[in-house]
Nucleic acid binder design. Structure first.
Lengths: 213, 213, 213, 213
DNA sequence: CTATAATCGAGACGGTACGTCACGTCTTGAT
DNA sequence: ATCAAGACGTGACGTACCGTCTCGATTATAG
């Protein structure tokens, strides 16, 4: 995803400084995390990275591209999940997502995602990447579960994705709005409840009619 | 919520032009909707509102405050819900939320909410307002349902809120990222599935263990 | 010269506050003296005078008019001179002028005069006033001296005026530029030398005493 | 005198555009001349110079500094004078000064000088420059004349300076106030009279020719 | 070993929006 | 009718950032 990686640039001339991309991306994420969008400055990123502005603009065409790229690289480290059971998979996934959105990088990633979704012109690679990463996980988990007979068929998998990802997002959002600081235990507990709801619902058994009529 | 409420304004001096707040807020939302964040200009808002910049800065200290306020005022018009049954309430709520986040105003409102959550310094009234509006709805619905015996007890209502609101958010997000344009029918269908999931779960009956052990 | 003095305003309605003109003119001169042209503010004048802006604008149409008027009223208190001899008259006049331009009011008056001379559009009453006050003095002194046979004829009186007034101006200017603070004695001495220089040139030979006694 | 001389500018970074100072100073003088103080705008200067505002503010801290500098650079081109006789020197000097103050640049220079003298904080280089340029001329002329025996000793040279410079100033001032437009002949005639007056006073008797020939 | 050339840091450049401030006008309730 | 207070539309102020550019210095390969 990094723009700076095309052909390996074999040839004459000074090669690009090896650690530069790394330093710049880190600096970009840090600046974005600390100062928010309004305070996110190209000059600031370059200064924090200890690098000239030309070094930045040689690699990314503009501010948006840099931020998008930073977030894409650092903000999507979601490892695949396969515990053998639907509940285990979803529990693991929910914990991952909650931790992800609670971390500075994951939070920044999400904000940039919303920014991208608001500007139709630069929906380029980013939206695909997001869809891929975020959507495929649940899809694969559910397909395996259906194969094992653990999950009903004919249910739109997108709804499951949206509920789990959305719950993690809103949980992180409310944590910030209310000034809480959730520890790992709180996150695990919340993940358990969300998965329980997704798996079994919140209705009492007697009122539970056939859900998908 | 309007920032313009400071001292009680004893009758000295020319009173503030009555319609100005209204005009400015409308102009701000229009500019934000048409031109996006990047093209959202204080001069532009003032010009569109037919007002001087000082009139704007007399009421809101800066750009962020104006946008936040505009979005808070126009973006939260969520009517209460009471259909008599848990499923009906949640269905209605889910439809409302989906429509809300799919509309330009609701989408903008959400983005500003994320911006506020990222800048700890101005979490003032806004976070309370959001929590109030967004959290109380589900709480009241669920409390009524528990009273009617339709819903299990001892389930954290926050998880329900987060799932429904989050699902609506992510649904709107993916609509934009993927370039779809969902019609009302698609929205209603998606709302039905989400509510079904929340109410009854997605696990097959035979694998359904006691969820809350 | 004060704009506020037309018809005595006999009639219905509240009469104008008696001391207002005075207070405003004083405040204007003080502000101009302390802060210079750039820091000279209508709001500042009104505040210092303890008066609303409308009270000011009711009397003078704009900033220039107020400043011009303030300076004309306070800065031109040049009493007529008639000692009986040319040397005595000029000496008295030179001392007056030097004291005038060294005083805050006189200095301000001069600056405003230059401002007026630079803006051809508002040369209205002011330039006439200046010419009157500044030119007639020397003219009358010289005419009397010619009549007494103390001064040569056919010499342009304007040149005498310009030399005396100009010397006083430049003396005050250089005092400020060089950070000096001339006392009365220094001023009197300088006046004596200037008059000696002027007299040596314009006096007829028979009345010409040793010029530098 | 140009403010643009700070650190020696080691060769790092892009060098400042060579012709920029020149262009900006010219644009500033033109704008000041055409539009006067009220219409003298930093944006206007930058636009006329074909330059961004940052380029201007990189060199001068504010409006006053730019105008002062423009006027100092362009407004002081007074060539030295040495005709061999006191009368010749003073005549030449008086003509120079009259022409100077009658020209737009010289007039502007003088106004800025008065502004500087009114604001004690920025009397920095400017006052020295003015004193140097304006005072030394007369001093040198007189010293040479004393050496030649053409001028009495023990006369304060400052008084001579002040009379000649002041006369030129007031002459130009009254020209503007009265709406005259003096041609070169009028200026020369006036210079002759002023010098005659000054000489009659300061010349020793033996070199004193008939002053008004 | 030298020439060529891409990259580096630094920072000036033309623009544009920011948030402030003053102008001169206006609108209020009180005198 | 005038007062004090202060909001109004306008427009310049001086600052900060964008993305581009130009410099001298560095660092590699190509000849």
């Amino acid at each position: 995803m990094t723009s700076g990686e095309g052909p390996p640039r074999r040839g004459r001339g000074r090669p690009r400084t090896p650690g530069a991309e790394e330093k710049i991306l880190n600096a970009a994420l840090d600046e974005y995390g600390e100062r928010g969008w309004a305070g996110f400055t190209m000059d600031g990123v370059a200064r924090r990275a200890g690098v000239g502005k030309s070094t930045v603009y040689l690699r990314w065409p503009d501010k948006d591209a840099l931020l998008t790229d930073a977030v894409t690289n650092r903000g999507m480290e979601l490892t695949a999940v396969d515990t053998g059971s639907l509940e285990g998979d979803l529990r693991q996934l929910a914990v991952n997502m909650l931790r992800h959105f609670h971390s500075p990088g994951g939070w920044a990633s999400m904000r940039v995602t919303f920014d991208c979704a608001s500007s139709p012109e630069r929906l380029g690679d980013f939206s695909e990447a997001v869809s891929q990463v975020h959507g495929r996980q649940v899809e694969q988990i559910c397909l395996r579960a259906i194969e094992r007979g653990e999950m009903i068929e004919d249910f739109p998998l997108g709804a499951v994705t949206e509920a789990i990802y959305g719950a993690a997002m809103v949980n992180s959002l409310s944590e910030r709005l209310e000034g809480r600081t959730d520890d790992d235990e709180a996150i695990d507990t919340r993940a358990a409840f969300v998965v329980a709801m997704v798996l079994g619902g919140i209705a009492t058994p007697q009122t539970r009619s056939t859900p998908h009529s």
